[in-house]
């Protein structure tokens, strides 16, 4: 099951320019969202957007800078929920920059777009849930006596 988004774009601008637009709060707000980002590992910040109630999203994205390698890589956590203090999505955004001629190849990976517990539950039901093994596991979990009878 897909739980991440990957995209690569080519921008006809230097890595330094692209990097500035990813890490300067004012520039970032011009194309992404209002924010209080600072290019410092460990810095907690927020993006603010319009709420999308059906997505369980109240408009606030809670982030923390996790990794920062100037001109090369930037990653931050990306969490939100339906109301303050309640997080339903705990995901990760990673930007990677690679110089290509005069321009920059910019990659984005947005991963963990699923609560881990939910991913397991779904995986159990949708894919890879081998019917025999799966059923037997469930039986054992809920009724260990079956195991005794069978062995």
């Amino acid at each position: 099951m897909q739980t991440e988004i990957r995209h690569t774009w080519f921008l006809d601008h230097s890595p330094a320019t692209v990097w500035e637009h990813l890490t300067n709060s004012e520039l970032l707000s011009q194309w992404l969202m209002a924010n209080d980002f600072r290019p410092v590992a460990g810095h907690h910040f927020m993006f603010r957007a319009g709420p999308v109630p059906k997505m369980d999203f109240d408009g606030n994205i809670y982030c923390q800078v996790l990794e920062i390698q100037p001109l090369k890589k930037l990653s931050y956590s990306w969490k939100f929920g339906p109301e303050p203090g309640k997080i339903v999505l705990d995901s990760l955004v990673t930007w990677t920059l690679t110089a290509r001629g005069q321009g920059t190849e910019l990659s984005l990976v947005h991963s963990g777009l699923q609560e881990p517990e939910h991913a397991i539950a779904i995986q159990g039901m949708r894919e890879g849930w081998d019917k025999n093994v799966g059923t037997r596991m469930v039986q054992l979990m809920i009724n260990p006596k079956i195991h005794e009878t069978n062995s």
């Binding site: 099951m1 897909q2 739980t3 988004i5 995209h7 774009w9 921008l11 006809d12 601008h13 320019t17 692209v18 637009h21 011009q30 194309w31 992404l32 999308v52 059906k54 997505m55 999505l89 910019l106 984005l108 947005h110 777009l113 699923q114 939910h118 779904i122 039901m125 949708r126």
Partner: peptide
């Protein structure tokens, strides 16, 4: 019920594509 769970992927896929177009426009 299971389809509902996958909305985040669709939503953010679209979100990032739109935002990146905006970035490209801004840079240009």
């Amino acid at each position: 019920g299971f389809k509902e769970l996958r909305q985040w992927i669709d939503y953010f896929d679209n979100f990032w594509q739109t935002k990146l177009k905006k970035l490209e426009y801004l840079l240009n």
